[in-house]
Amino acid sequence: MAVTIKDVAKLAGVSPSTVSRVIANHPRISVETSNRVREVMEELGYHPNMMAKSLVSKTTRTIGVVLPRPAEELLLNFFFYELIRGVLAQLTRAGYDLLMAGGSNEQEELETVTRLARSGRVDGLLLLYSRASDPVIHLLRKEKMPFVLLGRSLDYEDVPSVDNDNVQAAYDATKHLIAQGQRRIGFVSGPAKLAMTQDRMAGYTKAITEAGLPFKDGWVVEGEFLLESGYRAMASIMSQPEPPTALVIIDDVVAFGVLKGLTELGYRIPQDVAIVSFNNIALTELTMPPITSVDVGTYQLGYTASQMVLRMIQQVEITNRQIIPHRLVVRESSLRTLSLT
């Protein structure tokens, strides 16, 4: 005979409605009660019928994740694996499934999100990017679909979002290079339309301006979040009559390309060119030399974004903008003392 929700409630010493709330991860259920009910569910081998629950509650128990385009390039960057790991950890704990979606261009992306928002296939969405004049955000606000943005909206102040203080993070990274005695500091950027790129560029510019250091257009190169992008950037930036002796790089994977390009051009790191990048993925410790990187709390970004969208679905009040702390992890690639050996 199949175990029922009443069986779980009786053994756990709670009401059936409390068991239902535990299954739904209702925020007003205490951790103690939730743990007790879940232990009983496991002991009895009880598995809620999510399909039936969805029909009754008119929910799908599914969250959509809109990937930055193009998605095939996204999967070459380890940052997004760690981000998705954080997303999945929270969704799995809450009994939700994950649906990934995207498009190869802006129009396809908009059409995909329109279908998701209007078809009832998902209860909410996570946007893993933030760029200016994004029609997707306008659509989701119009459709009243719960969604959370990874990053800062450039168009709406009240969009629920999870982000770092990217201006301060880039400022800290640049100040670190300045403290090492660097005076010619360049910036390997991401796509100019992204809020993160604009904010990190602002932090870099603020730091060198405050220090009275030169800003040269030729020391700033725009690219994508790909190893190949960093590699190509070196042919341009190091061909300047007076090339930089230090670089702030938008992303660790891009930094791998920078290392490859600099090495092929005959530069030593950090003796000739010091570098600092962002995200602190695991491989930064394994490069030669290990790369100084700003840890942005990637896992926590994904976990918190998932948590926020679930609370919106449950109509629980949230703080619209949550900032995940960052920290600079100093390794050999930026240490000026090594250039004296």
Rank of each mutant, 00 (worst) to 15 (best):
F225D: 02
G223W: 03
E222K: 06
G218S: 14
A235L: 05
A233E: 15
Q240R: 00
E242K: 09
P243S: 13
Q240T: 05
I237S: 03
P241G: 03
F215L: 15
E222W: 02
P243Q: 12
P241R: 03
P241Y: 05
G218R: 00
P214E: 14
V221K: 00
A246F: 08
V221E: 07
V221R: 03
I237R: 10
G223Y: 11
Y231G: 03
L226W: 03
V220E: 15
E222M: 08
A233L: 14
I237M: 12
V220R: 15
E224T: 12
L247R: 08
P214M: 06
P243C: 13
A235P: 08
P214K: 01
D217G: 00
D217F: 08
E242S: 06
S239M: 01
W219I: 14
V220S: 15
S239A: 02
T245H: 05
L226Q: 04
G223P: 09
P243M: 04
L227W: 10
K216H: 12
G223I: 05
S239Y: 00
L247P: 03
I237D: 00
L227C: 05
Q240V: 10
M234Q: 13
A246D: 05
P243E: 14
Y231E: 15
M238H: 12
A233Q: 09
A235C: 02
Q240M: 13
L247T: 01
E242A: 01
Q240D: 14
A235T: 12
M234P: 10
Q240L: 11
K216A: 07
I237T: 11
Q240P: 05
V221L: 05
D217S: 07
W219T: 02
P241K: 15
L226M: 01
A235I: 07
P241W: 00
R232G: 04
E242T: 01
D217R: 00
L247C: 09
W219V: 03
P244L: 00
E222T: 10
P243V: 09
S239I: 04
L227H: 12
Q240A: 14
E242W: 07
P214Y: 04
P241T: 06
M238Y: 13
Y231T: 07
G230V: 15
G230A: 11
E228L: 03
A246V: 11
M238Q: 09
E242G: 04
F225E: 14
A246L: 10
K216T: 02
L226V: 00
G223N: 06
F215D: 14
S229Q: 02
S239W: 00
A246P: 08
M238V: 13
M238L: 11
P241C: 08
M238N: 13
M234Y: 14
L247A: 10
Y231Q: 13
G230H: 14
I237Q: 08
P244D: 01
P243I: 09
Y231D: 05
W219K: 14
L227I: 11
M234F: 15
A246R: 08
P214L: 04
Q240K: 04
G230T: 13
K216N: 01
P243G: 12
A246E: 13
R232Y: 15
F215K: 05
Q240S: 02
P214F: 06
G223K: 05
L227S: 06
